[in-house]
Amino acid sequence: MWLAVSPGLLAQFTLAGLMMGVLYALMALGITFIYGVMKTINWAMGEFYMIGSFVQYLIVSHLLGPDLWWLALPATAASVFVLGMLVQRLLLRPMFVGGVERRDEYATVITIALLLLLRSLAAVINGPYQHTPGSHLPDVTLGPLSVPGAEVAAAVVGVLVLGLFFLLLHRTWPGLALRAAAQNRIGVQTAGVDLLRLDMVAFGIGVSLAAVAGGLLAPVYLVYPTNGAVATTKGFEIIVIGGLGSIWGALVGGLLLGLAEALGSALIAPAYQNAYGFLLLILLLLIRPIGLFGERARVV
């Protein structure tokens, strides 16, 4: 059975897996980035993916049309960035100023409540309907494999967004402050950084990464109120694989998950696509419980 697949086909599947992995990585990067700076987990990440896909769909179908999808994407990212900042300001900031003792629990309760609220709101407003913004991009043939153009575009733009994110982090002043905050929240305040404001920015950036993934995948998968659930699951699978709080872990973990799903589908059976990631996760937990790039404790 293993040799039933030709090397050429295997290469195609590998490429397809890596392409999907880029979008998984975006999702995971958002989670790990917010955790890195704020030390809290945003369980509602998938709902921002969902909102991103809806905003993209609305802009494309009502304003710009499928040909200008690339123009809609920055608008999607920007609007979810602002929404994220608002959510952080109103719901999460109180735990940093009000002397909340168990921040992890507080953040868990708040973000899970937010998850339910956003998902239910979307269901109420949208109803049970599924949408697609559509795409005019022609299919791309990768050897024997024909891939929808929107999927290729999503992967390419995904790589670009990852590049932008790294530029922001390593070449700009807010990036420097964000990296510093991820390492030492007290030290960064002593150095004169307004951490409460920085948290807002971090949360905004994190959720807009999820929104970008949602916007890019809107024409690939359907747009509906619960489409964030899968995104959340994959995002957290990657976090466990890569290690919580690690940017590289999110990237490598995302690509690995994409690969595992594609190769599992090719070599074993496509029906269990979602199981291969968990298999990888369980294997990794047995070998290295802290994840690929995880740290037991941060050492300064």
């Binding site: 420097l176 990296r179 510093a180 390492q183 030492n184 007290i186 030290g187 960064v188 002593t190 004169g192 941060r298 050492v299 300064v300």
Partner: peptide, 13 residues
């Protein structure tokens, strides 16, 4: 400004 007894630096920077 202040310093800390255990330096609060940014280790990977």
């Amino acid at each position: 400004l202040r310093t800390f007894q255990v330096p609060r630096l940014f280790g990977t920077m």
